[in-house]
């Protein structure tokens, strides 16, 4: 069951990821990216990360991607035009990518102990309670600094996107 779930959602994630890269229209890329994030949320659940899976759905697939879709609609972004493609990139890009992935897979297989088998339910400390305890005791300072970061991001977004006032 674990294997089937992993394979199904891994394949969905990879296909949607390829779709993000190859589609010419940004709105199609955005919807594919939502597919990637949704399937990653299921994989997080399989790894026992309940809180992060929910946060992934709410924050990433919900808030951030809505922002993306909103900007795409606002700018009326059409399909991008292709021009001046490099011949070297066209010929070498895909083989080099596959070569890189083969090397990465080889080293991961070699250096990660293969005794670790992921069972659903074997990792129980990914609940909101445990995350909250860690966040408010050991990681309290980074958590508070994060609030300042978000405040700065809000101010920056407002300053950058406001209408220029006539002086």
């Amino acid at each position: 069951m674990d294997v089937i779930l992993f394979l199904v959602f891994a394949i969905i994630a990879v296909v949607c990821g390829i779709n993000v890269v190859v589609q010419r229209h940004p709105i199609t890329s955005a919807l594919s990216l939502i597919g990637v994030m949704g399937s990653l949320a299921v994989l997080y659940l399989l790894l026992g990360a309940e809180f992060i899976a929910m946060a992934q759905v709410i924050v990433y697939a919900g808030a951030i991607m809505v922002l993306f879709v909103f900007v795409i609609m606002l700018l009326n972004a059409g399909a991008e035009e292709t021009r001046g493609k490099s011949l070297v990139a066209q010929l070498l890009g895909l083989p080099l990518l596959i070569l890189f992935l083969a090397f990465a897979s080889y080293f991961v297989q070699r250096f990660v102990p293969s005794s670790t088998i992921v069972h659903f339910g074997a990792f129980k400390s990914g609940t909101a309670q445990n995350i909250g305890i860690a966040l408010f005791t050991r990681y309290l300072l980074p958590f508070e600094v994060t609030s300042v970061l978000i405040l700065i991001a809000i101010l920056g977004a407002i300053v950058l996107a406001r209408k220029e006032l006539d002086r």
Partner: peptide
């Protein structure tokens, strides 16, 4: 189950 390395490869 699934080996952990599959997740890393993904």
């Amino acid at each position: 189950g699934v080996p952990l390395s599959w997740y890393l490869i993904l």
